[in-house]
C-alpha cells in the first residue's frame, strides 16, 4: 500500500489522475483512474453474473454458487425490508449492492483505487436513491405521500414542529447514506496506509526497528477487519435503500 516517495502521504491514494483528458464544452469529462476502476468493477460484476448464470448446472460450480448466493441474499433482504411490493425494485437494489460490494473489495487490493472512497460517487448514488423515492412516492401515492411527514396521533399544537423535524430528518437521509459509506472506506484505507508508514519509519529507526513487526501484524488484522467493513457497508447501503423505498411504497407511519 505504500509507494516510495519523499514523504509518506496517506492521502495520495485518493488522488484522481486523468488518464485520457477530455473536455466537452468546458466541462472536464476526462477518463480518470476513478473511471477506470468503475469500468473494472462493472466488468467484474458482469463477469461473475453472466458467467455464473450461463451454465445453470444442477450441481452448481463456483461462479454459479456465487451468483446464486448473491441473488438469494439480496432478494431476501428486499423481501424482508420492503415486502413483496418492493421486489419490483430488486434489479435496482441488486445493481447497487453488487457495484458497492465489488468497488469496496477491489479497493482493498494494494495499488488499486477505491471508487466508493470518493464522496461524490456515494452522494450521487444517495441523491439518485432519494430522488427515486420522491418520484415513485408521488407517482404511486399522489399527495398521500406527504403523510410520510405527518405521524398519526400527534396533538395539533405540536404538529408544525413534528412536521418540520420530519422534513429535516428526511432531508438528512442522503447525507447520512453517502457519508457513512464514504467515511468508512476513507478511514479504513487511511488507517491501513498510516500503519504501513509506521513499518517503514520503524525500520529506519535503529534499535527501534525491532518493533517494526508490530504494526505489520496490525495491518494483517486491520485488513481482515476492512474486508468485514467492505461487505457490511455494501449490505447497509442496500438495506437502507430498501427501507427508503419501503417509505415510498407504504407512506404513513
Amino acid at each position: 500500500m505504500s509507494e516510495a516517495g519523499p514523504a509518506i502521504d496517506p492521502i495520495h491514494q485518493f488522488h484522481i489522475n486523468p488518464i485520457a483528458p477530455l473536455h466537452i464544452f468546458g466541462i472536464d469529462a476526462s477518463f480518470t483512474n476513478a473511471s477506470l476502476f468503475m469500468v473494472i468493477v462493472l466488468l467484474a460484476v458482469s463477469f461473475v453474473m453472466v458467467l455464473g448464470t450461463s451454465g445453470s448446472h444442477i450441481v452448481p460450480n463456483r461462479l454459479q454458487t456465487l451468483a446464486e448466493m448473491a441473488y438469494e441474499f439480496v432478494a431476501s433482504t428486499v423481501r424482508q425490508t420492503a415486502g413483496d411490493a418492493g421486489m419490483r425494485f430488486f434489479p435496482f437494489v441488486f445493481s447497487i449492492f453488487m457495484f458497492v460490494l465489488f468497488a469496496n473489495i477491489i479497493g482493498l487490493i494494494p495499488y488499486t483505487f477505491t471508487v466508493t472512497s470518493q464522496i461524490i460517487v456515494t452522494f450521487a448514488f444517495a441523491a439518485f436513491i432519494i430522488g427515486m423515492v420522491l418520484v415513485y412516492g408521488f407517482y404511486k401515492n399522489g399527495m398521500h405521500f406527504l403523510n410520510l411527514f405527518i405521524p398519526s396521533g400527534v396533538s395539533p399544537i405540536l404538529l408544525p414542529f413534528i412536521v418540520l423535524i420530519e422534513v429535516i430528518s428526511f432531508a438528512s437521509r442522503p447525507i447520512s447514506l453517502s457519508v457513512r459509506l464514504f467515511a468508512n472506506m476513507l478511514a479504513g484505507h487511511i488507517t491501513l496506509k498510516v500503519f504501513g508508514g509506521f513499518v517503514t519509519l520503524l525500520l529506519g529507526a535503529g534499535v527501534y526497528s525491532l518493533l517494526a513487526p508490530l504494526p505489520l501484524i496490525g495491518i494483517i488484522l486491520l485488513t481482515a477487519f476492512e474486508l468485514l467493513v467492505a461487505f457490511l457497508q455494501a449490505y447497509v447501503f442496500a438495506i437502507l435503500t430498501c427501507v427508503y423505498l419501503n417509505d415510498a411504497i407504504h407512506p404513513g407511519h
Partner: peptide
Amino acid sequence: FRVLSEFVAATVVG
C-alpha cells in the same frame, strides 16, 4: 454506525 451517522447528518442538515 447508522445511529451515529443519522444523528450527525440530521444535526448538520438542520
